[in-house]
């Protein structure tokens, strides 16, 4: 990915990130002492789990240099599918499985339309997302589904704990660990990066770039479905707009993470998700009304993109190099 001399790589960036987290946490604790409480910590890890899963899926799409705007709509449709299956008395794993199937199908439709038929990604996913959001009304005509939720066991997903952490958080860490190994320690991960960075040379190196692009869209949709399962477990009902709030935090997490860590990666998205969840949670705890949260996330997103942008980084680099003139020939 883009190399910058502005910040040190590896350990330096992680230290800078931890410093930023420490500063923010101190400020929030000063404003509202409850920030460090056990209750807030468990609420934060739960919110982080839902946002983090959606952001992880989006990371794949961003790595192959595409955009997906459909996953929020797909998540709504999957939420209603799961709700309908639970209300119909099906076992929980069948219900969740059918939701994931919705994600796989929707992701495959996006992926094949974009990679094999060459349709433009943004507009295509806006269209499929809109269709999926419309199909969320299919089962109940828009009414909330809540039947059988208490007996189905989905609520337990929200309340169960492993080693003091909520199950959803443990699940998040496990998925991120798998994704990290896949993306950064196997040739499949390298193929995703190659598809994004230089599809032509990736293709002539024998990488099926179209398949990898399509798979990225499937990963994105499935990530959003997994996120909405956690949201369903928390709310205990299935609503037609259950997944609509996933879009903005996911984009913000991916691009903020990339800005922090110097490139799109699994760990970058994790740190972006963590920072955004912490900021949203801290502001909510400090009593900020809910309708500011979109604005805050958007402002963070814009800040992240500005930092991530090579031109802006070049300007900053030049400024740094002007102040500390040494080792200038290492770049380009």
């Amino acid at each position: 990915m883009m190399k910058s001399g502005l910040l040190p790589h590896g350990a330096g960036r992680v230290l800078a990130f931890l410093g930023l987290v420490a500063v923010m946490a101190t400020l929030f604790t000063l404003a509202e002492p409850r920030f460090l409480s056990q209750a807030n910590f468990s609420a934060m890890t739960r919110h982080m789990a839902a946002n983090g899963l959606a952001a992880l899926g989006l990371t794949f799409v961003v790595i192959v240099r595409r955009f997906d705007l459909s996953f929020a709509g797909v998540a709504c449709f999957a939420a209603m599918t799961i709700g309908f299956a639970i209300a119909g008395g099906l076992p929980l794993w069948v219900a969740i499985g059918s939701g994931i199937l919705v994600g796989v199908v929707a992701g495959a439709v996006n992926g094949i339309a974009i990679s094999h038929f060459g349709l433009p990604d943004i507009v295509t996913t806006i269209a499929t997302g809109s269709i999926a959001a419309g199909m969320a009304f299919l089962y109940s005509g828009g009414r909330t589904i809540f039947q059988n939720f208490f007996t189905s066991g989905i609520i337990d997903l929200n309340d169960a704990r492993v080693l003091g952490f909520s199950v959803s958080f443990v699940f998040l860490i496990a998925i991120y660990a798998c994704a990290w190994v896949l993306m950064h320690r196997t040739r499949y991960g390298a193929a995703f990066y190659a598809t994004g960075e230089n599809p032509v040379s990736a293709f002539y190196s024998g990488i099926p770039t179209r398949t990898y692009t399509a798979l990225a869209f499937v990963a994105c949709a499935v990530g959003a479905v997994l996120a909405v399962v956690l949201i369903l477990a928390e709310s205990g009902t299935a609503d037609t707009n259950e997944g609509a709030n996933l879009l903005m935090p996911a984009y913000a997490a991916v691009f903020l993470g990339a800005a922090l860590m110097g490139g799109t990666s699994v760990l970058a998205t994790l740190s972006g998700t963590f920072l955004i969840t912490m900021l949203l949670d801290g502001f909510a705890l400090a009593g900020m009304p809910y309708y500011y949260s979109d604005g805050i996330v958007s402002a963070i997103l814009l800040g992240g993109v500005l930092l991530f942008d090579p031109r802006v980084r070049d300007i900053l680099d030049d400024a740094v190099r002007f102040l500390i003139p040494k080792k200038t020939e290492t770049r380009r």
């Binding site: 943004i122 500011y292 949260s293 604005g295 996330v297 402002a299 993109v305």
Partner: peptide
């Protein structure tokens, strides 16, 4: 900057 990301963000700020 990428138009999609920028306008998602400015749109979010306006909505807020």
């Amino acid at each position: 900057l990428p138009p999609l990301i920028v306008t998602i963000a400015t749109g979010g700020i306006c909505a807020s």
